[in-house]
Each structure stands twice: as C-alpha cells, then as structure tokens.
Amino acid sequence: MGTNRINKDRRKFFQTSAALIGGTLAFSIIKPLELLAQSKNEVAKDEKTEQPLWGMGVDIEKCIGCGKCVEACKLENNVPREPFYFRTWIEQYTVKKDGDVKIESPNGGIGGLKQSVPDEDIFKSFMVPKLCNHCTDAPCVQACPVGATYISPDGVVLVDETYCIGCSYCIQACPYGARFMNPVTKVADKCTFCYHRISKGLEPACVEVCPTDARIFGNLRDKKSDLVAFMQKHPTEVLKRHLNTSPRVFYNGLSSEVR
C-alpha cells in the first residue's frame, strides 16, 4: 500500500516536471522564430521611408571659444557639472613663435576661453570644438562586449543606458576621448547629436546656441542641406584620419597641430 502511494506521487512529480520542462523548451523554440517574423516586417517598413544620415560640420574659422555649446550641452543632456564629464568641449590651440604648441580647455571652455599666452609670443591661435565623431566604423561599438552601444539606422552612435555593464572598454577604444563614465547613471555616456531633439526636427543644443554658426548640423543624404553645402564649399577634414574610423564630423580649417 505504502509503496504504491509513493509510486503514484512519484509519477505525478515526474509528470508535472516533464510538462514544465517540455513547455519551457517549446516556448524557447517558438520565441526566436517569432522574433524573426517580426524583424522581417520592420525592415520592410524602414526601407520605404528614406532614413537620414546625420552628420556635423565644424567651422574652425568661425569658432570664438565662448563655450556656449558646452554649457548648453550639459544642461540639455543632464551632464554632471564637474569638470571631468563632457559630451562636447572646446580646445584652444596656441602655436608659439618658438614652435611650441599650447593646448588648453579649462572646464571644457565653459565661461569662454581666455588666452594665456602673451600676444607677442603667439604665432597663431585657433579654437577647436570637439565632440563624438559618430564614426562609421566606430571602435567603441566594435569593442562593446554586450551590444550596449550601437550605430542607429540614421548614423548616430548611441548608448543603451539600461543595458551597459559599465566596463569602460568603449572609453578605452575611443581615440577622441569623447566618452566618459557617468557618475550618476554609472554607464558610458557620450554625445548623441541630441538624439531626442533631432528626432523631433530640432537642432542639437550646441548647434542651436552657437552664436557664430560654427557648427552645422544636417543630413548627409539630403543634397540640399546646409551641411552638404558646407562640405561642398570648404575643404573638410576629419580627426585622426590615420585610424580609419570614418567620422561623420567634418572640420573646416583643421590645422596639423590638432590631435
């Protein structure tokens, strides 16, 4: 009698566990298939509407180093105020008559850059705004172990804040120093071309506030955009060309001292 009951219980246990395992297995086989079917539809939809390809032009011949873009960027994107976190910053290069190059960017240029070299020693001086270059072959995206940073279909390098594990490998991989570890969210942070603005038809905050129009934002695929006109009119160059990252931020008037 007793053994019989145990056997029954046992059988029941096996039945339930078999059902559970079977169900899980079946579900896990169906799930990826579901995903496949879905993704096909999505791609088809996207192909119809022509995606923009966002890029930026920076005109060194217009930048006055007022730092408005840096301030606006910090405000718009909730970047911590401390002087170690920048999505964009301005560098002032001063080439001295003796050939030395002095580069400065106190607090990223917030509050306006001030010339620290006496006039009589200066050979030439210019301002270089820096930001994420939104590389076509982005080393940071290549390095991210989990797929938490990526190039969006419209060509912007973005970070998935809910997925980033905070390993800093992308920061090491970025040749431009454009990434930082956000001390509040504890994930990698960087310029997004103000993705929340451009997707609503607005300009990035830095472009919006630039008093001299030294930054030109636009769609590289739109042959009538200001950006394309800027690139046609000026000889443009990208930063660290030798690294072959194919940036989508183009500089006019880039001097060889800039690194």
Binding site: V146, M181, V187
Partner: peptide, 18 residues
Amino acid sequence: LQHPFRSYEIFMTPNSTS
C-alpha cells in the same frame, strides 16, 4: 564593472566583434 549585476549579458548577447 559599474553594473556588476549586468555582467551575465556578456554570455547572453556577446558582441562578436568585441
């Protein structure tokens, strides 16, 4: 890691180029 509890993602969605 800044988010140690997300470390399992390395095994779940490994980026083949990383």
